[in-house]
Amino acid sequence: MKLKMLKKGTTKTVRDNTAALLLLFVGFFSGFAQETEENKEPQSGSTSVKLSQEVMNPTTLAWQLQLEEFAIFKTEGQDGFAQNFRVRGIIPVKEGFLIKVPQLIRVIAFFNTAPDGRTGLGDVTLNQFFILSKKDWGQFGAGWNIQIPTRTDDQLGSPQWSLGPAFTVTFTNLGKWQMYWIWENFFSISENDKYGSSAYAVLQPNVFYTWSNGVYAGIEPEWQIDYKTGKVAIPMDFRVGYIWSGKLKYNAYIEPEVMAYRSDGYPRNSANFGVRLGFRWYLPM
């Protein structure tokens, strides 16, 4: 697969944007790290590992606000800097009205920029996971997704409503390791006569190692497969992060990502290289 090189002018813009993003990340990190030093309580190494794993576990019942900037420096077939800014809120429910099991409701919104500079809202996704089984080895959950076409430009999102089931399996009894899988499905349910029907899945394998000082490292790529054509996009990333506890629980990370393989003509993920900067707040129930 051939990747187009960025022009000199674009390279300078990318360099400036990268520096700005890194400064923003360091500012967030320094401020909250200082608060942590002022408020933290002594804890053993095992407690710190446990804290990190609880924060990273996607089935942990906790109120969360997650901000993530994905700066895209190389896009297949296009020149120019692009970005996806994601805001995700997570609402925990100890017991539902109809289904009497713990639940997590996620609301995800995007503010995107295309390589040609067009900027605006992306799509909004709602999903709900039911924690159906909790064992010594981990948890199993299932639920549903709905994608709402709220994009302000066709380059920034999909023109169709999509709906589908979702599943998650978490393995937590692995010492300082943690592994979980998320499988989400999206099937178009509107405008099929105009745009054609679509059916694809997002499979997210997550493997992390946590140290006793709150530092962790691992992978969290989002692999995609088109059910109709069999075409795939398989990015790979590497995340380094830090989790600490002050007034709330915090998680900050940096995550470079490169497209390891993409089928010719796959339409939904054209990012060849980018860097994610994320910050998350957690408030236990």
Score class of each variant (00 low, 15 high):
residue 227 Y to W: 09
residue 121 L to G: 03
residue 88 R to S: 02
residue 155 Q to V: 14
residue 94 K to Y: 06
residue 167 F to S: 05
residue 47 T to E: 15
residue 127 N to E: 06
residue 175 G to T: 05
residue 4 K to N: 09
residue 78 Q to T: 11
residue 157 G to R: 02
residue 36 T to F: 07
residue 85 F to G: 01
residue 92 P to L: 02
residue 24 L to Y: 14
residue 141 G to P: 00
residue 155 Q to S: 12
residue 58 P to I: 01
residue 58 P to V: 00
residue 74 K to D: 15
residue 252 A to W: 13
residue 213 N to E: 03
residue 185 N to D: 11
residue 263 S to M: 12
residue 52 S to W: 06
residue 218 G to I: 05
residue 182 I to D: 03
residue 251 N to W: 09
residue 245 S to C: 07
residue 74 K to S: 13
residue 115 P to E: 08
residue 30 S to V: 15
residue 256 P to H: 11
residue 4 K to R: 12
residue 15 R to Y: 12
residue 234 I to C: 06
residue 224 Q to Y: 09
residue 9 G to M: 11
residue 25 F to C: 01
residue 61 L to V: 02
residue 217 A to L: 11
residue 107 V to N: 04
residue 66 Q to H: 12
residue 212 S to Q: 07
residue 274 G to M: 14
residue 253 Y to N: 13
residue 156 L to V: 02
residue 200 Y to A: 01
residue 253 Y to I: 01
residue 140 F to M: 02
residue 250 Y to P: 03
residue 260 A to S: 10
residue 66 Q to A: 12
residue 144 W to V: 04
residue 131 I to G: 01
residue 72 I to E: 14
residue 214 G to E: 09
residue 230 G to A: 09
residue 115 P to R: 08
residue 147 Q to V: 15
residue 188 S to H: 14
residue 194 K to L: 03
residue 173 N to I: 06
residue 193 D to S: 12
residue 213 N to M: 05
residue 171 F to E: 06
residue 274 G to D: 10
residue 232 V to L: 08
residue 60 T to K: 14
residue 285 M to R: 04
residue 21 L to S: 09
residue 27 G to Y: 03
residue 71 A to V: 11
residue 251 N to H: 13
residue 196 G to M: 08
residue 276 R to Q: 13
residue 231 K to M: 10
residue 195 Y to V: 04
residue 239 R to F: 02
residue 88 R to N: 07
residue 48 S to P: 08
residue 9 G to L: 04
residue 181 W to T: 04
residue 5 M to T: 10
residue 213 N to Y: 00
residue 211 W to N: 02
residue 230 G to C: 13
residue 45 G to W: 00
residue 210 T to K: 07
residue 24 L to W: 13
residue 282 Y to K: 06
residue 254 I to L: 15
residue 203 L to E: 07
residue 174 L to D: 04
residue 26 V to A: 13
residue 215 V to H: 02
residue 98 L to I: 13
residue 80 G to K: 11
residue 185 N to F: 05
residue 196 G to K: 10
residue 252 A to I: 13
residue 52 S to R: 09
residue 115 P to G: 05
residue 179 M to D: 05
residue 67 L to I: 02
residue 195 Y to H: 12
residue 204 Q to C: 02
residue 265 G to C: 10
residue 12 K to E: 11
residue 86 R to V: 12
residue 254 I to P: 06
residue 68 E to Q: 15
residue 69 E to F: 10
residue 106 R to Q: 03
residue 139 Q to Y: 01
residue 108 I to V: 04
residue 224 Q to T: 14
residue 246 G to I: 12
residue 106 R to C: 00
residue 207 V to W: 08
residue 119 T to R: 08
residue 45 G to Q: 02
residue 261 Y to Q: 07
residue 212 S to T: 02
residue 118 R to L: 06
residue 245 S to Q: 14
residue 227 Y to E: 10
residue 104 L to F: 00
residue 224 Q to A: 06
residue 139 Q to D: 11
residue 218 G to E: 07
residue 64 Q to I: 00
residue 279 F to I: 00
residue 233 A to F: 06
residue 154 D to P: 14
residue 165 P to G: 04
residue 183 W to S: 03
